[in-house]
Nucleic acid binder design. Structure first.
Lengths: 108, 108
DNA sequence: TGGTCATATAAATATATTCGAATATAATGA
DNA sequence: TCATTATATTCGAATATATTTATATGACCA
């Protein structure tokens, strides 16, 4: 965990390396503030687990938080994160398509 | 490690969640074929370690390989990976700049 | 055939991540 | 003040990842 640019980059990408966090980013992809309770309901995650994932994302600067009364709201800190997210999703689906074609042809 | 889209997405992003692999992607960012030996020299990694990282990336479809004589060459499979890479790098550096400004103002 | 080069694989160890259970805190309302 | 709601923190077990050393494979050459 040194702080050269490669480690920083890798640490930032760790935010995206867990399915729960990917789901949470998708929930927050509109760039608006979302209360924890909403994410818990929609995602169906355990309260502690969800809170820990939000804390990881916040610690790495991927999301911001604000408190209002007893609720805490989170939002994505930089919409370029969503652009990167969508690029990776596209890579995955064209990779899947390519493997599908190979499969059809009996290759692989 | 289920295979819903969130897990797939997370698994793919794991490729980017290690500093050695980030460095390797940077070495391969031109989209051309690079022999393992070159990456080993430039990056200064142990042979086995390098080989395993390349294997992880290949297993997740991020890079392709071809063999020529006794050398093995690797290249990035989809240049959108580099576009996503650059977006994240930009997020990091504008985050760093923003934190710098806060520091100047005595905030944090 | 035997040796060497380039790379891969295996096994061992050290470290990190994930999740759930229990507990803590802070805001609100009775 | 006490109870309740919303969220965070701590801890431990299970699992995953990274690194090193040793060994294996496959291509080439003498």
């Amino acid at each position: 965990m040194e702080d050269d640019i490669y480690s920083l980059h890798a640490e930032t990408c760790k935010v995206f390396s867990n399915p729960v966090r990917i789901r949470l980013l998708e929930l927050m992809r509109d760039g608006k503030w979302h209360p924890v309770g909403e994410m818990q309901k929609v995602g169906g995650y355990g309260q502690a687990n969800l809170s820990q994932h939000l804390s990881v994302m916040r610690g790495r600067g991927a999301i911001y938080s604000k408190k209002e009364g007893r609720q805490v709201f989170y939002r994505i800190s930089d919409m370029r994160i969503i652009r990167a997210f969508d690029l990776i999703r596209a890579v995955i689906s064209s990779g899947a398509k390519a493997r599908g074609r190979l499969l059809e042809k009996g290759g692989y």
